[in-house]
Write a protein that binds this DNA or RNA. Sequence first.
DNA 1: TACGAACCGGACAGTGCTGTCCGGTCGCTG
DNA 2: CAGCGACCGGACAGCACTGTCCGGTTCGTA
Lengths: 206, 206
Amino acid sequence: MPPTGPDTAIPGRPAADLRPAGRDPSDRRNRGRGAAAQNRSALVAAAREVFADVGYDAPLSSVARRAGVGQGSLYRHFPDRVSLALAAFEENVSELEALADRPGTTVEDCLSLLAEQSIAAVAYIHLLSGRADDPRVAAVAQRVTAVLAATLPEAQQAGRLGRHLDASDLLMAVGMVSGLLTQVPAAGRRATAGRAWALLHRALVP
Amino acid sequence: MPPTGPDTAIPGRPAADLRPAGRDPSDRRNRGRGAAAQNRSALVAAAREVFADVGYDAPLSSVARRAGVGQGSLYRHFPDRVSLALAAFEENVSELEALADRPGTTVEDCLSLLAEQSIAAVAYIHLLSGRADDPRVAAVAQRVTAVLAATLPEAQQAGRLGRHLDASDLLMAVGMVSGLLTQVPAAGRRATAGRAWALLHRALVP
DNA sequence: TACGAACCGGACAGTGCTGTCCGGTCGCTG
DNA sequence: CAGCGACCGGACAGCACTGTCCGGTTCGTA
Protein backbone atom coordinates (compact mmCIF):
# COMPACT_ATOMS: atom_id res chain seq x y z
CA MET A 1 0.00 0.00 0.00
CA PRO A 2 1.40 3.41 -0.98
CA PRO A 3 1.78 6.01 1.73
CA THR A 4 -1.64 7.44 1.22
CA GLY A 5 -2.09 10.83 2.74
CA PRO A 6 -5.14 12.24 4.40
CA ASP A 7 -6.88 11.05 1.27
CA THR A 8 -7.61 7.74 2.97
CA ALA A 9 -10.85 9.14 4.24
CA ILE A 10 -14.04 8.53 2.33
CA PRO A 11 -13.54 10.05 -1.10
CA GLY A 12 -16.92 11.06 -2.45
CA ARG A 13 -18.07 12.80 0.69
CA PRO A 14 -16.86 16.35 0.99
CA ALA A 15 -19.81 17.70 2.87
CA ALA A 16 -20.86 16.79 6.36
CA ASP A 17 -24.27 18.32 6.51
CA LEU A 18 -25.11 19.36 9.97
CA ARG A 19 -26.20 22.63 8.54
CA PRO A 20 -29.79 23.52 9.25
CA ALA A 21 -30.25 24.96 5.78
CA GLY A 22 -31.02 28.45 6.93
CA ARG A 23 -33.59 27.46 9.49
CA ASP A 24 -32.67 27.59 13.13
CA PRO A 25 -34.55 25.29 15.49
CA SER A 26 -34.22 27.78 18.29
CA ASP A 27 -35.57 30.58 16.13
CA ARG A 28 -38.67 31.74 17.88
CA ARG A 29 -40.41 32.18 14.59
CA ASN A 30 -40.53 28.43 14.08
CA ARG A 31 -42.73 28.18 17.13
CA GLY A 32 -46.31 29.03 17.78
CA ARG A 33 -49.53 28.52 16.06
CA GLY A 34 -48.97 29.48 12.45
CA ALA A 35 -45.63 27.80 12.01
CA ALA A 36 -47.08 24.36 11.38
CA ALA A 37 -47.43 24.79 7.64
CA GLN A 38 -43.99 26.35 7.30
CA ASN A 39 -42.41 23.55 9.30
CA ARG A 40 -44.19 21.00 7.20
CA SER A 41 -42.93 22.38 3.95
CA ALA A 42 -39.44 22.80 5.35
CA LEU A 43 -39.56 19.11 6.22
CA VAL A 44 -40.67 18.17 2.73
CA ALA A 45 -37.91 20.23 1.16
CA ALA A 46 -35.32 18.79 3.51
CA ALA A 47 -36.54 15.28 2.80
CA ARG A 48 -36.08 15.84 -0.92
CA GLU A 49 -32.50 16.96 -0.40
CA VAL A 50 -31.59 14.24 2.04
CA PHE A 51 -33.20 11.45 0.06
CA ALA A 52 -31.29 12.72 -2.96
CA ASP A 53 -27.97 12.89 -1.16
CA VAL A 54 -28.06 9.83 1.01
CA GLY A 55 -30.75 7.63 -0.47
CA TYR A 56 -34.09 6.33 0.64
CA ASP A 57 -32.60 4.81 3.77
CA ALA A 58 -31.34 8.12 5.10
CA PRO A 59 -31.88 8.71 8.83
CA LEU A 60 -35.05 10.65 9.42
CA SER A 61 -33.31 12.50 12.21
CA SER A 62 -31.04 14.09 9.62
CA VAL A 63 -34.11 15.28 7.75
CA ALA A 64 -35.36 17.01 10.88
CA ARG A 65 -31.94 18.54 11.46
CA ARG A 66 -31.68 19.81 7.91
CA ALA A 67 -35.18 21.25 8.13
CA GLY A 68 -34.24 23.06 11.31
CA VAL A 69 -37.05 21.34 13.16
CA GLY A 70 -37.30 19.01 16.11
CA GLN A 71 -37.76 15.27 15.87
CA GLY A 72 -41.16 15.62 17.44
CA SER A 73 -42.42 17.87 14.71
CA LEU A 74 -41.21 15.51 12.04
CA TYR A 75 -43.07 12.54 13.47
CA ARG A 76 -46.14 14.60 14.20
CA HIS A 77 -46.42 15.64 10.57
CA PHE A 78 -45.28 12.34 9.04
CA PRO A 79 -45.90 9.25 11.13
CA ASP A 80 -43.64 7.04 9.05
CA ARG A 81 -40.98 7.10 6.37
CA VAL A 82 -43.32 6.31 3.52
CA SER A 83 -45.66 9.17 4.25
CA LEU A 84 -42.72 11.57 4.31
CA ALA A 85 -41.39 10.18 1.06
CA LEU A 86 -44.78 10.39 -0.61
CA ALA A 87 -45.07 14.01 0.40
CA ALA A 88 -41.53 14.70 -0.78
CA PHE A 89 -42.15 13.20 -4.20
CA GLU A 90 -45.70 14.38 -4.70
CA GLU A 91 -44.33 17.40 -6.50
CA ASN A 92 -42.51 15.15 -8.97
CA VAL A 93 -45.67 13.29 -9.83
CA SER A 94 -47.87 16.33 -10.16
CA GLU A 95 -45.24 18.04 -12.28
CA LEU A 96 -45.27 15.03 -14.56
CA GLU A 97 -49.05 15.03 -14.78
CA ALA A 98 -49.09 18.72 -15.49
CA LEU A 99 -46.60 18.23 -18.30
CA ALA A 100 -48.65 15.42 -19.78
CA ASP A 101 -51.80 17.53 -19.71
CA ARG A 102 -50.18 20.27 -21.71
CA PRO A 103 -51.13 19.90 -25.39
CA GLY A 104 -48.35 18.78 -27.67
CA THR A 105 -46.44 16.95 -24.97
CA THR A 106 -44.85 13.74 -26.22
CA VAL A 107 -44.01 10.60 -24.32
CA GLU A 108 -40.36 11.48 -24.89
CA ASP A 109 -40.92 14.69 -22.97
CA CYS A 110 -42.39 12.68 -20.11
CA LEU A 111 -39.47 10.26 -20.17
CA SER A 112 -37.05 13.16 -20.15
CA LEU A 113 -38.69 14.63 -17.13
CA LEU A 114 -38.72 11.28 -15.36
CA ALA A 115 -35.06 10.79 -16.20
CA GLU A 116 -34.24 14.22 -14.85
CA GLN A 117 -36.27 13.61 -11.71
CA SER A 118 -34.61 10.26 -11.17
CA ILE A 119 -31.17 11.86 -11.14
CA ALA A 120 -32.12 14.22 -8.37
CA ALA A 121 -34.23 11.66 -6.56
CA VAL A 122 -33.11 8.10 -7.06
CA ALA A 123 -35.16 7.25 -4.03
CA TYR A 124 -38.28 8.39 -5.88
CA ILE A 125 -38.01 5.67 -8.48
CA HIS A 126 -36.80 3.24 -5.87
CA LEU A 127 -40.00 3.88 -3.99
CA LEU A 128 -42.13 3.53 -7.10
CA SER A 129 -40.59 0.26 -8.26
CA GLY A 130 -40.01 -1.30 -4.89
CA ARG A 131 -42.87 -0.91 -2.46
CA ALA A 132 -45.66 -1.99 -4.74
CA ASP A 133 -47.30 -3.74 -1.81
CA ASP A 134 -48.07 -0.50 0.00
CA PRO A 135 -51.36 0.78 -1.42
CA ARG A 136 -50.32 4.42 -1.06
CA VAL A 137 -47.21 3.76 -3.14
CA ALA A 138 -49.08 1.67 -5.65
CA ALA A 139 -51.48 4.54 -6.22
CA VAL A 140 -48.62 6.88 -7.08
CA ALA A 141 -47.01 4.33 -9.37
CA GLN A 142 -50.33 3.94 -11.09
CA ARG A 143 -50.51 7.67 -11.76
CA VAL A 144 -47.08 7.61 -13.39
CA THR A 145 -47.90 4.57 -15.47
CA ALA A 146 -51.11 6.21 -16.60
CA VAL A 147 -49.20 9.23 -17.88
CA LEU A 148 -46.88 7.04 -19.93
CA ALA A 149 -49.68 4.85 -21.21
CA ALA A 150 -51.60 7.90 -22.38
CA THR A 151 -48.74 9.47 -24.30
CA LEU A 152 -47.03 6.39 -25.69
CA PRO A 153 -49.40 5.47 -28.57
CA GLU A 154 -48.92 8.80 -30.32
CA ALA A 155 -45.16 8.27 -30.49
CA GLN A 156 -45.62 4.76 -31.74
CA GLN A 157 -48.04 5.82 -34.48
CA ALA A 158 -45.63 8.52 -35.51
CA GLY A 159 -42.92 5.90 -35.74
CA ARG A 160 -40.67 7.50 -33.15
CA LEU A 161 -40.90 4.67 -30.65
CA GLY A 162 -41.13 0.96 -31.32
CA ARG A 163 -44.46 -0.83 -31.27
CA HIS A 164 -42.95 -3.53 -29.12
CA LEU A 165 -43.08 -1.22 -26.11
CA ASP A 166 -45.75 -0.65 -23.55
CA ALA A 167 -45.94 1.72 -20.59
CA SER A 168 -44.47 -0.80 -18.20
CA ASP A 169 -41.42 -1.17 -20.45
CA LEU A 170 -40.83 2.54 -20.17
CA LEU A 171 -41.20 2.50 -16.43
CA MET A 172 -38.83 -0.44 -16.36
CA ALA A 173 -36.29 1.53 -18.34
CA VAL A 174 -36.53 4.35 -15.86
CA GLY A 175 -36.14 1.82 -13.07
CA MET A 176 -33.05 0.35 -14.72
CA VAL A 177 -31.34 3.70 -15.01
CA SER A 178 -32.27 4.70 -11.52
CA GLY A 179 -31.14 1.34 -10.19
CA LEU A 180 -27.81 1.91 -11.85
CA LEU A 181 -27.60 5.36 -10.33
CA THR A 182 -28.05 4.03 -6.82
CA GLN A 183 -24.77 2.19 -7.30
CA VAL A 184 -22.92 5.34 -8.21
CA PRO A 185 -21.83 8.25 -6.03
CA ALA A 186 -24.11 11.25 -6.34
CA ALA A 187 -21.48 13.36 -8.04
CA GLY A 188 -21.25 11.13 -11.11
CA ARG A 189 -24.94 10.46 -11.53
CA ARG A 190 -25.68 12.87 -14.31
CA ALA A 191 -22.89 11.54 -16.49
CA THR A 192 -23.81 7.95 -15.78
CA ALA A 193 -27.46 8.60 -16.53
CA GLY A 194 -26.47 10.14 -19.84
CA ARG A 195 -24.50 7.09 -20.87
CA ALA A 196 -27.23 4.74 -19.77
CA TRP A 197 -29.95 6.56 -21.67
CA ALA A 198 -27.76 6.71 -24.74
CA LEU A 199 -27.45 2.96 -24.64
CA LEU A 200 -31.15 2.47 -23.95
CA HIS A 201 -32.15 4.79 -26.76
CA ARG A 202 -31.33 2.09 -29.28
CA ALA A 203 -33.70 -0.23 -27.46
CA LEU A 204 -36.59 2.20 -27.65
CA VAL A 205 -36.60 3.39 -31.25
CA PRO A 206 -38.21 1.15 -33.89
CA MET B 1 -10.30 -25.28 -1.05
CA PRO B 2 -10.82 -28.24 1.32
CA PRO B 3 -13.08 -31.07 0.18
CA THR B 4 -16.03 -29.78 2.14
CA GLY B 5 -19.37 -31.21 1.16
CA PRO B 6 -22.22 -28.69 1.36
CA ASP B 7 -20.40 -26.00 -0.50
CA THR B 8 -22.86 -24.93 -3.17
CA ALA B 9 -25.19 -22.06 -2.49
CA ILE B 10 -28.83 -22.70 -3.08
CA PRO B 11 -30.25 -19.87 -5.17
CA GLY B 12 -33.97 -20.35 -5.05
CA ARG B 13 -34.33 -21.09 -1.37
CA PRO B 14 -37.39 -19.53 0.26
CA ALA B 15 -35.21 -19.64 3.30
CA ALA B 16 -35.90 -18.80 6.83
CA ASP B 17 -33.37 -16.82 8.66
CA LEU B 18 -32.47 -18.11 12.04
CA ARG B 19 -31.66 -21.64 11.06
CA PRO B 20 -27.99 -22.54 11.32
CA ALA B 21 -28.00 -24.36 7.98
CA GLY B 22 -27.00 -27.72 9.35
CA ARG B 23 -24.08 -26.43 11.37
CA ASP B 24 -24.41 -26.16 15.12
CA PRO B 25 -22.23 -23.60 16.89
CA SER B 26 -22.05 -25.79 19.95
CA ASP B 27 -20.98 -28.81 17.93
CA ARG B 28 -17.56 -29.70 19.28
CA ARG B 29 -16.36 -30.51 15.81
CA ASN B 30 -16.47 -26.85 14.89
CA ARG B 31 -13.82 -26.30 17.52
CA GLY B 32 -10.18 -27.10 17.68
CA ARG B 33 -7.29 -26.70 15.44
CA GLY B 34 -8.37 -28.01 12.05
CA ALA B 35 -11.79 -26.41 11.99
CA ALA B 36 -10.57 -23.04 10.77
CA ALA B 37 -10.77 -23.87 7.08
CA GLN B 38 -14.18 -25.48 7.45
CA ASN B 39 -15.52 -22.51 9.38
CA ARG B 40 -14.15 -20.19 6.77
CA SER B 41 -15.87 -21.91 3.91
CA ALA B 42 -19.09 -22.21 5.89
CA LEU B 43 -18.94 -18.45 6.35
CA VAL B 44 -18.38 -17.87 2.66
CA ALA B 45 -21.30 -20.11 1.74
CA ALA B 46 -23.53 -18.44 4.30
CA ALA B 47 -22.52 -15.03 3.06
CA ARG B 48 -23.51 -15.96 -0.48
CA GLU B 49 -26.94 -17.05 0.69
CA VAL B 50 -27.53 -14.10 2.96
CA PHE B 51 -26.31 -11.50 0.50
CA ALA B 52 -28.59 -13.09 -2.09
CA ASP B 53 -31.63 -13.13 0.17
CA VAL B 54 -31.28 -9.88 2.03
CA GLY B 55 -28.89 -7.80 -0.04
CA TYR B 56 -25.49 -6.32 0.45
CA ASP B 57 -26.54 -4.52 3.61
CA ALA B 58 -27.53 -7.68 5.41
CA PRO B 59 -26.40 -7.88 9.05
CA LEU B 60 -23.13 -9.72 9.35
CA SER B 61 -24.39 -11.29 12.54
CA SER B 62 -26.96 -13.17 10.48
CA VAL B 63 -24.17 -14.52 8.30
CA ALA B 64 -22.42 -15.90 11.35
CA ARG B 65 -25.67 -17.40 12.61
CA ARG B 66 -26.44 -19.02 9.29
CA ALA B 67 -22.92 -20.42 9.10
CA GLY B 68 -23.30 -21.88 12.56
CA VAL B 69 -20.30 -19.96 13.77
CA GLY B 70 -19.67 -17.34 16.42
CA GLN B 71 -19.33 -13.64 15.72
CA GLY B 72 -15.72 -13.82 16.78
CA SER B 73 -14.83 -16.34 14.12
CA LEU B 74 -16.50 -14.25 11.46
CA TYR B 75 -14.52 -11.13 12.26
CA ARG B 76 -11.32 -13.09 12.69
CA HIS B 77 -11.58 -14.49 9.20
CA PHE B 78 -13.02 -11.38 7.56
CA PRO B 79 -12.18 -8.11 9.25
CA ASP B 80 -14.78 -6.12 7.34
CA ARG B 81 -17.81 -6.48 5.11
CA VAL B 82 -15.92 -5.96 1.89
CA SER B 83 -13.44 -8.73 2.52
CA LEU B 84 -16.28 -11.12 3.27
CA ALA B 85 -18.11 -10.08 0.14
CA LEU B 86 -15.01 -10.43 -1.99
CA ALA B 87 -14.50 -13.95 -0.70
CA ALA B 88 -18.15 -14.76 -1.28
CA PHE B 89 -18.06 -13.58 -4.88
CA GLU B 90 -14.60 -14.80 -5.80
CA GLU B 91 -16.17 -17.96 -7.13
CA ASN B 92 -18.35 -15.92 -9.49
CA VAL B 93 -15.35 -14.14 -10.93
CA SER B 94 -13.18 -17.19 -11.32
CA GLU B 95 -16.07 -19.05 -12.93
CA LEU B 96 -16.37 -16.22 -15.42
CA GLU B 97 -12.66 -16.23 -16.14
CA ALA B 98 -12.68 -19.98 -16.58
CA LEU B 99 -15.53 -19.69 -19.05
CA ALA B 100 -13.72 -17.01 -21.00
CA ASP B 101 -10.58 -19.12 -21.20
CA ARG B 102 -12.44 -21.98 -22.76
CA PRO B 103 -12.01 -21.88 -26.55
CA GLY B 104 -15.08 -20.91 -28.49
CA THR B 105 -16.62 -18.88 -25.71
CA THR B 106 -18.39 -15.78 -26.98
CA VAL B 107 -19.00 -12.50 -25.22
CA GLU B 108 -22.67 -13.42 -25.22
CA ASP B 109 -21.83 -16.49 -23.15
CA CYS B 110 -20.02 -14.28 -20.68
CA LEU B 111 -22.94 -11.88 -20.52
CA SER B 112 -25.32 -14.77 -19.96
CA LEU B 113 -23.25 -16.01 -17.09
CA LEU B 114 -23.02 -12.54 -15.59
CA ALA B 115 -26.76 -12.13 -15.96
CA GLU B 116 -27.36 -15.44 -14.26
CA GLN B 117 -24.93 -14.60 -11.47
CA SER B 118 -26.54 -11.23 -10.96
CA ILE B 119 -29.92 -12.82 -10.35
CA ALA B 120 -28.58 -15.00 -7.57
CA ALA B 121 -26.29 -12.31 -6.22
CA VAL B 122 -27.51 -8.80 -6.85
CA ALA B 123 -25.05 -7.69 -4.21
CA TYR B 124 -22.21 -8.96 -6.37
CA ILE B 125 -22.86 -6.45 -9.12
CA HIS B 126 -23.75 -3.83 -6.57
CA LEU B 127 -20.30 -4.27 -5.13
CA LEU B 128 -18.62 -4.17 -8.52
CA SER B 129 -20.38 -1.04 -9.72
CA GLY B 130 -20.51 0.81 -6.47
CA ARG B 131 -17.33 0.65 -4.45
CA ALA B 132 -14.90 1.50 -7.20
CA ASP B 133 -12.91 3.56 -4.71
CA ASP B 134 -11.83 0.51 -2.73
CA PRO B 135 -8.73 -0.87 -4.47
CA ARG B 136 -9.64 -4.47 -3.67
CA VAL B 137 -13.01 -4.04 -5.32
CA ALA B 138 -11.53 -2.16 -8.23
CA ALA B 139 -9.19 -5.08 -8.88
CA VAL B 140 -12.10 -7.48 -9.13
CA ALA B 141 -14.06 -5.13 -11.37
CA GLN B 142 -11.00 -4.89 -13.55
CA ARG B 143 -10.88 -8.66 -13.94
CA VAL B 144 -14.49 -8.73 -15.07
CA THR B 145 -13.99 -5.86 -17.46
CA ALA B 146 -10.94 -7.59 -18.90
CA VAL B 147 -12.97 -10.70 -19.68
CA LEU B 148 -15.57 -8.66 -21.53
CA ALA B 149 -12.99 -6.57 -23.34
CA ALA B 150 -11.23 -9.70 -24.54
CA THR B 151 -14.30 -11.39 -25.93
CA LEU B 152 -16.20 -8.40 -27.28
CA PRO B 153 -14.24 -7.70 -30.51
CA GLU B 154 -14.93 -11.14 -31.93
CA ALA B 155 -18.68 -10.62 -31.64
CA GLN B 156 -18.40 -7.18 -33.18
CA GLN B 157 -16.37 -8.42 -36.12
CA ALA B 158 -18.85 -11.20 -36.63
CA GLY B 159 -21.59 -8.59 -36.68
CA ARG B 160 -23.47 -9.99 -33.73
CA LEU B 161 -22.92 -7.00 -31.48
CA GLY B 162 -22.80 -3.34 -32.40
CA ARG B 163 -19.51 -1.56 -32.93
CA HIS B 164 -20.74 1.30 -30.79
CA LEU B 165 -20.19 -0.81 -27.66
CA ASP B 166 -17.20 -1.22 -25.44
CA ALA B 167 -16.62 -3.39 -22.40
CA SER B 168 -17.76 -0.72 -19.98
CA ASP B 169 -21.08 -0.48 -21.83
CA LEU B 170 -21.63 -4.16 -21.26
CA LEU B 171 -20.76 -3.87 -17.59
CA MET B 172 -23.10 -0.93 -17.39
CA ALA B 173 -25.88 -3.00 -18.90
CA VAL B 174 -25.31 -5.66 -16.28
CA GLY B 175 -25.35 -2.95 -13.64
CA MET B 176 -28.63 -1.58 -14.95
CA VAL B 177 -30.35 -4.93 -14.79
CA SER B 178 -28.95 -5.71 -11.41
CA GLY B 179 -29.91 -2.26 -10.15
CA LEU B 180 -33.44 -2.91 -11.32
CA LEU B 181 -33.43 -6.26 -9.56
CA THR B 182 -32.54 -4.70 -6.23
CA GLN B 183 -35.85 -2.87 -6.42
CA VAL B 184 -37.80 -6.09 -6.85
CA PRO B 185 -38.58 -8.84 -4.35
CA ALA B 186 -36.33 -11.85 -4.74
CA ALA B 187 -39.14 -14.07 -5.94
CA GLY B 188 -39.78 -12.06 -9.08
CA ARG B 189 -36.18 -11.43 -10.04
CA ARG B 190 -35.77 -14.04 -12.71
CA ALA B 191 -38.84 -12.86 -14.59
CA THR B 192 -37.87 -9.22 -14.27
CA ALA B 193 -34.34 -9.92 -15.45
CA GLY B 194 -35.75 -11.69 -18.50
CA ARG B 195 -37.87 -8.70 -19.43
CA ALA B 196 -35.03 -6.29 -18.87
CA TRP B 197 -32.58 -8.23 -21.01
CA ALA B 198 -35.16 -8.58 -23.74
CA LEU B 199 -35.47 -4.82 -23.83
CA LEU B 200 -31.72 -4.30 -23.68
CA HIS B 201 -31.08 -6.79 -26.45
CA ARG B 202 -32.23 -4.26 -29.01
CA ALA B 203 -29.64 -1.85 -27.67
CA LEU B 204 -26.80 -4.30 -28.09
CA VAL B 205 -27.27 -5.71 -31.57
CA PRO B 206 -26.03 -3.65 -34.54
C1' DT C 1 -54.38 41.86 29.73
C1' DA C 2 -55.10 37.04 30.84
C1' DC C 3 -56.09 32.49 29.42
C1' DG C 4 -55.58 28.22 27.06
C1' DA C 5 -55.39 25.52 22.75
C1' DA C 6 -52.10 24.45 19.43
C1' DC C 7 -47.72 23.64 18.57
C1' DC C 8 -42.65 23.22 19.13
C1' DG C 9 -37.87 21.21 20.32
C1' DG C 10 -35.11 18.05 22.19
C1' DA C 11 -34.32 14.46 25.71
C1' DC C 12 -34.82 9.69 26.14
C1' DA C 13 -35.86 4.79 26.14
C1' DG C 14 -36.05 0.91 23.00
C1' DT C 15 -33.90 -1.70 19.45
C1' DG C 16 -30.53 -3.66 16.35
C1' DC C 17 -25.85 -3.92 14.34
C1' DT C 18 -20.79 -3.76 14.64
C1' DG C 19 -16.50 -5.11 16.09
C1' DT C 20 -13.72 -6.48 20.30
C1' DC C 21 -12.51 -9.25 24.06
C1' DC C 22 -11.93 -13.19 26.87
C1' DG C 23 -12.85 -17.63 29.12
C1' DG C 24 -13.02 -22.06 27.40
C1' DT C 25 -12.05 -26.06 24.08
C1' DC C 26 -9.34 -28.87 21.11
C1' DG C 27 -5.66 -31.59 19.33
C1' DC C 28 -0.76 -31.67 18.30
C1' DT C 29 3.73 -32.64 20.29
C1' DG C 30 7.26 -33.94 23.42
C1' DC D 1 -0.23 -38.17 29.39
C1' DA D 2 0.59 -33.44 30.25
C1' DG D 3 1.43 -29.00 28.41
C1' DC D 4 0.71 -25.49 25.12
C1' DG D 5 -0.68 -22.77 21.39
C1' DA D 6 -4.27 -22.24 18.02
C1' DC D 7 -8.80 -21.56 17.68
C1' DC D 8 -13.73 -21.07 18.96
C1' DG D 9 -18.28 -18.98 20.69
C1' DG D 10 -20.81 -15.65 22.57
C1' DA D 11 -21.10 -11.74 25.79
C1' DC D 12 -20.73 -6.98 25.66
C1' DA D 13 -19.71 -2.09 24.99
C1' DG D 14 -20.25 1.42 21.64
C1' DC D 15 -22.95 3.54 18.34
C1' DA D 16 -26.83 5.03 15.34
C1' DC D 17 -31.67 5.37 14.38
C1' DT D 18 -36.60 5.29 15.66
C1' DG D 19 -40.55 6.96 17.70
C1' DT D 20 -42.56 8.86 22.12
C1' DC D 21 -43.15 12.11 25.69
C1' DC D 22 -43.25 16.37 28.08
C1' DG D 23 -41.93 21.06 29.60
C1' DG D 24 -42.08 25.26 27.39
C1' DT D 25 -43.52 28.82 23.82
C1' DT D 26 -46.74 31.36 20.93
C1' DC D 27 -50.79 33.66 19.55
C1' DG D 28 -55.89 33.93 18.92
C1' DT D 29 -59.68 35.19 21.73
C1' DA D 30 -62.31 37.22 25.25
